[in-house]
Design a protein around this nucleic acid. Structure first.
Length: 570
DNA sequence: GCCGTTTTCGGCCCGACTGTTTTCAGTCG
């Protein structure tokens, strides 16, 4: 799909226009167009061929022409023209905190700063300091910005961010005592985005300055980025940026709504409020001078005539319209999952015995689980030969005699081999209770065709981590998910939402597409140790971000109904 | 540059913090 290519050009055009001091609304138009292209499920080439570009919100005449130009000529003349008039490393420069478009333009005009190297040299020489409106402190901020960009530029995975936010909250609760009336995560952490840029916490207190001070004095703080009356921003361990906002009693709901975002969701919400003659800010909903809502989120949304929207949905992807129409999906909840269908033991590369791991899963309150250890070709993971698989099955059969409230399914995570075959014969597969098929090698050799071939095997119930991406390390397969989803629907094979916070694969937008197409998903931990069973919350949150309800998720089924589902699709 | 049960022209979300300022611009979220 060309969507992301064009989206990134529009984003860069917005950056350039901002650098050149264009009207902010024009800039925002390009940014919005970029987002619509990136998040729209539909292939821009297909839309263009059907003459339907104008149906996309925020895509007007001028932008349509640029899209068509790109599809025709693989370039956009206007973009290239603009590019020639700005610093060579403009986009890198603009990514430096505290070095925005205005400053970059001034430094380019007066000092000819085109690159990061130029900028560093101008700081060292003192020439940046001599520019109008500059002072020692501003230059120091920019210097720190460069440092920050070079050390802490990576986005933080939700699995790292959540424990940090919990630590900050418990620290503030402990030190702030009853001065803290309410405290909660906000921002992208509360929305459970797969990665976050910084970590937001919101506190309700009558003594905000005191709480901000406690916050900036936390032992893990290595740098204070800002500290005012109601807002503090720090760097923890030189890596994680945490922002604390403090609000006075009565405004917590409005502030929580506001600081949870997303920005796009909030913009839409405020537009909607304006049309009703209301104003929303972080202190409440106002009709003229009168505050009409603000203490809690539910009341705020209700006052705007809409249902409360789960934070995971707040991305302006249709949730506002759905909330107004009272048609929000009833999102799947962690406690609706009755089983975890992708678990490893020390028979392959897990850490616990079958018995200990099964006991740990049962202790989480599940009704069933499936051991899906690796298959024979997965040497790196101590994959099971057919003899060892048979041995595992016998152990599992004995385990099942122990419990009458919990069933252990004997399964496998069978390799989809590089040549497209599966790593166990059909004779072996058909004797298993649940089979996941996954790609762990041969990433380049036709992953789409191999995945589809695996789905056509009647004994494959689930495709494990379909794209193979690792959030912090690997981009993932070049796989045509539209085709995979289509085949999943045809063959009745489920697609995994792998809860491991480094995978979260399928991703939220793929989940939404899959569900809309009628495919089923299965949320699993892929746990190799008992502690990893906790990661289910990330998979559930990701599924919720993909608008999944319980009926879309096969492991919300009772075991009996799960077996019926399998039988129908085998 | 986009968009319209207030509008085809005139709007376009809102506020905190910082630093360099005699009243505000730039940056950020």
């Amino acid at each position: 799909m060309k969507n992301s290519e064009i989206a990134s050009i529009f984003d860069r055009m917005a950056d350039i226009l901002e650098f050149k001091g264009e009207l902010i609304f024009k800039i925002n138009a390009y940014r919005k167009a970029s987002r619509v292209l990136l998040e729209g499920a539909e292939d821009i080439e297909i839309l263009a061929a059907q003459n339907r570009l104008g149906e996309l919100p925020g895509i007007g005449k001028a932008i349509q022409e640029k899209i068509l130009e790109y599809l025709r000529e693989k370039r956009i003349a206007k973009y290239e023209e603009l590019l020639a008039t700005v610093p060579r490393e403009l986009f890198e420069l603009l990514s430096i905190p505290n070095y925005g478009p205005k400053t970059a333009a001034l430094a380019y005009r007066e000092l000819g700063i085109e690159t990061l190297q130029d900028l560093k040299a101008a700081i060292d020489k003192g020439s940046l300091r001599d520019l109008p409106g500059m002072g020692d402190r501003k230059v120091e901020k920019i210097r720190q910005g460069i440092e920050l960009r070079e050390s802490a530029s990576e986005r933080i995975s939700i699995g790292i961010a959540l424990p940090i936010v919990e630590e900050v909250i418990s620290y503030l609760r402990a030190t702030g005592g009853d001065r803290i009336l309410q405290i909660a995560p906000a921002g992208s952490v509360r929305r459970f985005r797969e990665t976050v840029h910084d970590i937001d916490v919101l506190v309700e207190t009558a003594v905000s300055a005191e709480i901000i001070r406690l916050f900036t004095e936390m032992p893990q703080v290595t740098r204070i980025l800002a500290a005012g009356e109601t807002k503090g921003s720090v760097l923890l361990d030189d890596r994680f940026q945490v922002d604390l906002r403090a609000v006075s009693p009565g405004s917590f709901g409005a502030a929580l709504q506001y600081f949870t975002g997303s920005k796009e969701h909030n913009v839409r919400l405020r537009e909607l409020a304006r049309k009703k003659g209301l104003k929303i800010n972080e202190y409440g909903v106002f009709a003229g001078e009168d505050k009409v809502a603000g203490e809690d989120e539910e009341a705020l949304y209700a006052y705007l005539g809409m249902a409360w929207i789960a934070p995971e949905l707040r991305e302006d992807r249709g949730e506002i319209e759905a909330a107004v129409a009272q048609h929000l999906p009833n999102l799947v909840h962690l406690n609706e999952l009755l089983g975890d269908l992708h678990i490893h033991s020390n028979q392959s590369d897990g850490h616990l015995t079958l018995e200990d791991m099964a006991a740990a899963v049962r202790a989480r309150g599940y009704r069933y689980m499936a051991f899906c250890d690796h298959s024979q070709s997965a040497f790196y993971a101590n994959g099971l030969s057919s003899d060892r698989l048979q041995h595992s099955k016998e152990t599992i059969a004995r385990l099942n005699e122990k419990w009458d409230d919990f069933v252990v399914l004997a399964g496998a995570e069978v390799e989809i081999l590089a040549d497209g075959r599966l790593d166990y014969s059909d004779e072996i597969l058909k004797e298993l209770d649940f089979v996941v098929a996954s790609i762990h090698s041969g990433f380049k050799s036709d992953p789409t065709g191999r995945t589809i071939a695996a789905m056509q095997n009647p004994y494959i119930d689930l495709i494990g981590h379909p794209t193979g991406r690792l959030i912090s390390r690997r981009k993932g397969l070049e796989i045509d998910l539209d085709k995979v989803i289509e085949s999943a629907v045809l063959t009745g094979t489920a697609l995994e939402v792998n809860s491991s916070w480094d995978r979260l694969d399928l991703q939220e937008l793929h989940i939404k597409n899959a569900i809309e197409a009628g495919a089923k998903i299965c949320i699993n931990t892929d746990a190799h140790d008992s502690s990893q069973l906790d990661q289910m919350q990330f998979g559930v949150a990701t599924a919720r971000r993909g608008w999944a309800t319980a009926k879309d998720v096969i492991n919300t089924l009772s075991l009996e109904r799960l077996k019926k589902w399998q039988k129908r699709n085998r």
